[in-house]
Amino acid sequence: MFLTVNGEKHEHSGDGTVAALLTELGATPDHTALTVNGELVFSRHWKTFKFNDGDTVEILTFVGGG
């Protein structure tokens, strides 16, 4: 399925779960927050959540800031 991840087209070849996408991208789940189509998806819901074709996904992490 095709997703837009952090502003770029991404072809996801996994099972559409958060874990599969994060593994595909090399992101660490514990260090990651997620929005899908603008809505926050809480990590406690990640196990049951499935992406749909065309979803816009933002994957966020902490960086240095004042």
Partner: peptide, 16 residues
């Protein structure tokens, strides 16, 4: 800390 898009090219930016 600040929140930014995950960057697979710069995994070292991750402060967690």
């Amino acid at each position: 800390v600040a929140l930014r898009r995950f960057n697979r090219e710069k995994p070292g930016d991750d402060l967690c």
